[in-house]
């Protein structure tokens, strides 16, 4: 593949693009699996970011190990944002995907995408994205509830959800999500070392 890399000197080769595509698909599936358990319940909905961060960690780590180049995470963020919008999620989530992917890119870029610690920090930043769909609850609660009820969310759901949404919830959610992301990333790192590097995949 070396000639191929030279052919497109700037940025990613076709192989990288295909790899990002395959892993984006896995990432989306992992997000769904993590989200489906918690998102539909008004109290447990706040655990969605945690579960997603935990489940999708290994996928992200292997992706960043396989494509250590500028743009990989950005593309993942853009594609995920597109899919989330198409499947009818709250639009701030899509924006959060793109913005946080850009930040994660910058962080991982400091270590030239090969520094494991910086990659993990990048993932922690990136995994805060589902909070984008809740953040309005604290910034502008009224607009958010009006938006959701007009979209068909039932009043009882909203009431239960709001009762759970105390002021301390947001920082707690951010911290716990970051912790879960750290756990997920460490799990990914362990798997990388134990299995994938031995098999020559990563």
């Amino acid at each position: 593949m070396s000639s191929q890399v030279q052919a497109i000197k700037k940025g990613m080769s076709t192989k990288d693009l295909v790899t990002v595509g395959v892993f984006s698909a896995l990432f989306f599936v992992a997000t769904l699996v993590g989200g489906i358990l918690f998102a539909p319940n008004p109290v447990l909905t706040y655990f969605t970011p945690l579960a997603v961060a935990l489940v999708s960690g290994p996928v992200y780590m292997l992706l960043s190990a396989k494509v250590p180049k500028r743009g990989a995470i950005m593309i993942l963020g853009i594609v995920m944002g597109l899919l989330m919008f198409v499947t009818g999620m709250y639009w701030l989530w899509s924006i959060a995907y793109v913005v946080l992917a850009a930040v994660a890119e910058l962080v991982a870029g400091i270590g030239k995408y090969k520094n494991m610690k910086l990659n993990i920090i990048g993932y922690i930043v990136f995994s805060l994205n589902p909070i984008g769909s809740y953040i309005m609850l604290w910034i502008n609660q009224k607009a958010y509830t009006e938006y959701l009820t007009s979209k068909g969310t039932e009043q009882a759901y909203m009431d239960t959800m709001l009762a759970t949404a105390q002021n301390w919830m947001l920082p707690v959610m951010i911290v716990t999500t970051a912790l879960c992301a750290l756990l997920g990333a460490i799990l990914g790192k362990k798997l990388l070392g134990k299995q994938f590097q031995k098999a020559g995949v990563a």
Partner: peptide
């Protein structure tokens, strides 16, 4: 192309 190829593959 950087978005198109991953999207299609996905």
């Amino acid at each position: 192309k950087n978005v198109l190829v991953p999207l299609t593959v996905m």
